[in-house]
Design a protein around this nucleic acid. Sequence first.
DNA 1: CTGTGGGCCGCAGGCCGACAA
DNA 2: TTGTCGGCCTGCGGCCCACAG
Lengths: 595, 595
Amino acid sequence: MEKSLDSELWHACAGGMVKMPPVSSKVFYFPQGHAEHASSSAVVDFTHLPRIPPLILCNVTSVKFLADPKTDDVYAKIGLIPNSSGTGLDQEQVLDDNVKQPPVSFAKTLTQSDANNGGGFSVPRYCADTIFPRLDFTADPPVQNIVAKDIHGETWKFRHIYRGTPRRHLLTTGWSAFVNHKRLMAGDSVVFLRAVSGDLCIGVRRMKSHGEMKTSSSGWSGLSDSCFSAFMIKNANGGCGSRVSAEMVVEAALKAASGKAFEVLYHPRMSTPEFCVMAGTVRQAMMVRWCGGMRFKMAFETEDSSRISWFMGNVSAVRPADTIHWPDSPWRLLEVAWDEPEMLQNVKRVSPWLVEPVSIIPALDLSPFSPPFKRPRLLQPPDFSINPNEFPIPKFASNLFGSRNFLTGYHNNNNNNVPVGMQGARHTQFNNSKFQSSARPASATNISDNNVSCLLTMAQNNSIKNKEEPKVPPRFVLFGRPILTEQEISVLHHEKTSSNDCSFNLETTRHCKVFMEAEDVGRTLDLSVLRSYNALREKLSQMFKLENPVMLHNVMYYDSQGEFKHVTDHEPFREFARTARKLKIQMDSTTSRNS
Amino acid sequence: MEKSLDSELWHACAGGMVKMPPVSSKVFYFPQGHAEHASSSAVVDFTHLPRIPPLILCNVTSVKFLADPKTDDVYAKIGLIPNSSGTGLDQEQVLDDNVKQPPVSFAKTLTQSDANNGGGFSVPRYCADTIFPRLDFTADPPVQNIVAKDIHGETWKFRHIYRGTPRRHLLTTGWSAFVNHKRLMAGDSVVFLRAVSGDLCIGVRRMKSHGEMKTSSSGWSGLSDSCFSAFMIKNANGGCGSRVSAEMVVEAALKAASGKAFEVLYHPRMSTPEFCVMAGTVRQAMMVRWCGGMRFKMAFETEDSSRISWFMGNVSAVRPADTIHWPDSPWRLLEVAWDEPEMLQNVKRVSPWLVEPVSIIPALDLSPFSPPFKRPRLLQPPDFSINPNEFPIPKFASNLFGSRNFLTGYHNNNNNNVPVGMQGARHTQFNNSKFQSSARPASATNISDNNVSCLLTMAQNNSIKNKEEPKVPPRFVLFGRPILTEQEISVLHHEKTSSNDCSFNLETTRHCKVFMEAEDVGRTLDLSVLRSYNALREKLSQMFKLENPVMLHNVMYYDSQGEFKHVTDHEPFREFARTARKLKIQMDSTTSRNS
DNA sequence: CTGTGGGCCGCAGGCCGACAA
DNA sequence: TTGTCGGCCTGCGGCCCACAG
């Protein structure tokens, strides 16, 4: 029943930043992080429990790669046993596993055209050339049927054709069925992968929901606060039972504290930091003498999961995240001030092993443009005392690593308090000198109302655009859903708030497809052919079978650039119709509803 | 959030046999019945709990009529508080509530054509005439939009048109949306109802799944064993969380036993008997000196939920259903042998208040034609001892009811072991003296073939004629009802007792209209135009789509004068056709049934 | 090279009368 | 009286090319 799925495809779906600890390796388990990860909006309450150490060294006994049967959401079940003997592989011993090349894969974020019900998928040439079976180009047109397995091992057939002027690769027949079955939307990604077995695989990566924008005003998916979790639970309610509950956290933490074997579930795409971290990684990070003002960089996945981006900031304080319950925990030990604070509003604290010190020069010299962190914090005692019983690593013991550590050379060149905390093989391509030369504080963007701000992504060339969200009454804000399961379709019903007022939540997926309550599933509203605001009113009136054209109180949408827009009859409507990605419409139908 | 829904529509959806106790009335709560009702295939386990009385007198503090938002499955939430003071209304005080006429409603089981995505719904004329708003027949075609509210108050709009050749009423536009939204299939029923407010309502009654037929080989839905429940749970699995769980039962039972207020959920369409029964009903039933061999009848809902039918049987034993856990419980006290055992295979035991003794004459006097029940059983100890603490009603204490009891006179006249156990308001129109005066053994009609006989009642003018049943094996005895209400007119069904043998119960009302089983409801058999016995045979054969003319073993009827007649091909048929009021026909169709 | 728009075609949804049960 | 069938029409899904960025 619970068979570990294909690890290659699993990792491709999980994203580039996810590295699962190998079996037999040593990790630190963080109950705090586990609680954060739990899909319960209520904070997991440890107060009534016996004291639990903030981090527990464990051996990894098993790792199962799993996926939600409905949503294809990947997650892992990790078997752990608290390690008192010190056996097990430390990080450097298992590098080979991590270093081995992943199989060739290609991820593409779906465009409107890919995701709309029009039919086809535009295959990037690189993907067709390197991953798909070779076409016979002597045929006219060159065409073949390809078969791809999804994460569950289900096979999907697609017609792959090379046609059009100019010629391009397309998936036609079969694609629409895949999109509908997986309920993909523009913005989601598909991953094609040629497994080492030779099988072609296809995976799904959901967009980090639009709802996230509203809740967190962050388009970033890397780290985020627990308010995210609240959203995702609600979202996953109708779904599987595989989410992490508060009870599971408590159970795991108690077992860990008492030395018993336990299991944890980890959802790599849930936007909370890993809570089972390779022991070596943590140890290295904690060898750094963290102090206020230190400059660092940290990797985040871009919104479309296609790339990794680095953000920079300064440590503004070093102190435990929860001084009451976890006074001696290194979890989220660092309070940080980002160079681009608007982008990462919800990331106030990070754990040391997630960041990498970059600055040779102490941060005290920052220019007036830098974010206003509090100087007094810099003067707080910079050394954070860790209970040596739990964390028996000397703070300045880089020499301990000796020549076995691939970072040694780097260390030796920077031994004047220089923080070092790289993790895994991920950053080997980094050219430090280059990075540091370009690292400078960004200008601080002042945001007046932080309840309604939105931040978006994300440009071609790794540059970040920031857009502020207009202030609107919250009831009109569309709370997007990343996925519509069969169950959820009817959740997306219209809500009759009063006798004369209907609020419809519509989601345009793709181009013009509108998901509505069950009876109207699949009905399409072709925004693109509508030339005017009034045309929209009439069209909606038709669709909902209202006797008179609806009064639209409010139409708001996110366009393809992630810009939040408010539509009125005075605005250029065509632009709306062309670019709307998600919208919410507040209708006033004083007439009763047909059908 | 949890607002009680429209009671009229709720009752229409729940079915004709469901009577909810009014607020302030007194009921007996049966933990055993509650456990049976629980949607858990695992038996609720009371063994580890403190002893709980088998029945607990409670006051009804609230009744909320609810429906599952997804499936429209109706259920009630009943607030109860154990009654120690004896306050609250007893049954007879609330008769008025029960007696009031239900609003006019019509249920139709969906045909393939109705449930197709082809589009429309064929409206039976009766429904269109009596329930829908009147069409303007001067228009061509006559057409209107009708609006109906579902159980949640949502409005649905349908185009109602009168067209086709020959003309018929149809619902077109809007119907498909309704079918899809409610996920209706052929075999499910819709209920149209004209509320007292004047609103048109539309409700849904799901088929008691196909599986049931196989599981139980019973088309009846009234009472059934728990094997039904197991199936229905499975059916409802995807549904709401409002089902009754074992935990809820335990909680309710504990609270009830300790005198605390509690709430129960009751799903009327789950095919388990009510476990909150009007106190008066239970008391009356328990005043009967139940003993083996007693003859009774019991009402069941027909498969299509459209009508109520009566089955007869004999009490084969009187003893608690669960001698170990509930040794002194009246719940399912009677072990019964049905006249038509194949029909009710799963109903082995019933509670006394669900059945009604029918025979005036002690079963000992039955003629040799009578069914061969075992004499020894009659000699078993007939008195069932009930713990007086829990059930403080003397067995022969009709005097306790005093003048408040409408049955008192009747009791007094029949104190020689005569079973009496009338229930509810159903029989209030019974005129006892009249009944008794006319009660005499009918001349035993000697029937050569005792496999086929029939008997009926009836009269024009509210007078009741009592006819003794011919002595025939009980399985073929149809027991008519003293009064035909408008509802009851179409009580009919056909029972396929074996592969080659169909037995049809037909009831003619008024002149010549014959209603038949679900698929044929409303089909008329115009007796008056039939000139011969053979014509009847052919006609019936047509109606039931039999390949050959049916063999009529027996046709018997009461005419408008209440005379009992036996029709053969030698009898004057025309007279039969003109005067028959009720009849039963036993067919022999050696040919198998079409369609 | 690849995203988007529009044309076009086939099919399913849905309304109809014919016909027979 | 009403269930089912086949016809017919419309609108949507889906495949195609043109064109532009």
